[in-house]
Amino acid sequence: MTITPTKTLSVSIERKANEVYEFILNPENLPQWAPAFGQSIKKI
């Protein structure tokens, strides 16, 4: 079994939790907050 190293990063966001939730809930915002996972978004 191969063990892959991991790294945890954290940031503080000066916004209310519901504002952050609404932002990350929208898939079109994925490239802004998780660029490694969402390079581009396509509407189907």
Rank of each mutant, 00 (worst) to 15 (best):
T4E: 12
T2I: 15
F23H: 04
L25A: 09
S40L: 04
Q32P: 00
N29V: 07
K42Y: 04
P31R: 09
E19Q: 15
P35H: 04
E14V: 03
I41Q: 01
A17T: 11
L30W: 05
L30S: 05
T4H: 14
P27I: 03
L30D: 02
P27V: 02
Y21H: 09
K16L: 13
W33F: 11
I44Y: 01
M1L: 14
F23W: 08
P5T: 06
E22S: 13
K16N: 12
K42I: 07
K16D: 15
I3K: 08
S12A: 13
T2Q: 08
K16E: 15
T8Q: 12
P35D: 02
A34F: 13
T6F: 06
L30T: 07
E19C: 06
E14H: 09
W33E: 03
N26V: 05
W33S: 05
N29I: 04
V11Q: 11
A36H: 10
R15E: 08
P35F: 05
I41G: 00
N26G: 02
P35Y: 01
R15A: 15
L25G: 07
N26Y: 04
E28P: 00
I3G: 04
L30R: 07
R15M: 11
L30Y: 03
Q32E: 08
N18C: 05
K42L: 10
R15F: 07
Q32M: 08
K42C: 03
Q39M: 06
T4D: 07
F23V: 00
Q39W: 03
M1D: 11
P5H: 06
A36Q: 12
P5N: 11
T8E: 10
E14Y: 07
